[in-house]
Nucleic acid binder design. Structure first.
Ligand SMILES: [Zn+2]
Ligand SMILES: [Zn+2]
Length: 134
DNA sequence: CTTAACGTAGGG
DNA sequence: CCCTACGTTAAG
């Protein structure tokens, strides 16, 4: 796709992390005054554990996922904002490896921008409310 | 830039 | 209520 553009566009995702233009403020920035002697990775792991206890544990894969630091930051920011949620990674649909290739979403994938119905995360299937107790 | 996918509005 | 389309986010 020819997109004649040379302007250095700031990553939209990063904007929320420190800007929050007149829309909520998470104030969840990692701060500790003196932090630097210990491995920065350790700090990130720490944050990850913190967020895990706060709401959920979006860890993907049984062993330690590579990039836990980024995941922790993303999760923390996402929870503070009303950003898009990520798949839980533990439900059956999430565990699906490939698209069925036979559902509407698979056919309209190019225009619908939706994941295969068989792979749609159970958690993301709904938004809020708890299925009402009939 | 490219690809994948969530959120949501609109239509049926 | 479910399906489809588009915009947008998020990651590579
Ligand atoms: Zn499918
Ligand atoms: Zn899931």
């Amino acid at each position: 796709m020819p997109k004649p553009r040379g302007g250095p566009g700031p990553p939209q995702e990063d904007i929320y992390e420190f800007s929050l233009d007149g829309d909520e403020d998470p104030k969840i920035f990692l701060r500790g005054g003196v932090m630097g002697r210990a491995s920065p990775l350790a700090e990130y792991i720490r944050a990850e554990h913190h967020q895990a206890g706060l709401y959920s544990l979006p860890l993907l894969g049984p062993p330690e996922p590579p990039g836990a630091a980024a995941a922790a930051m993303a999760a923390a920011a996402a929870s503070a904002q009303k950003k898009k949620r990520k798949r839980c990674g533990v439900c059956v649909p999430c565990l699906r490896k490939e698209n069925c290739g036979d559902c509407s979403n698979c056919f309209n994938r190019k225009v619908g921008h939706q994941i295969c119905k068989l792979r749609k995360c159970d958690v993301l299937k709904k938004k809020k409310s708890a299925w009402e107790v009939s």
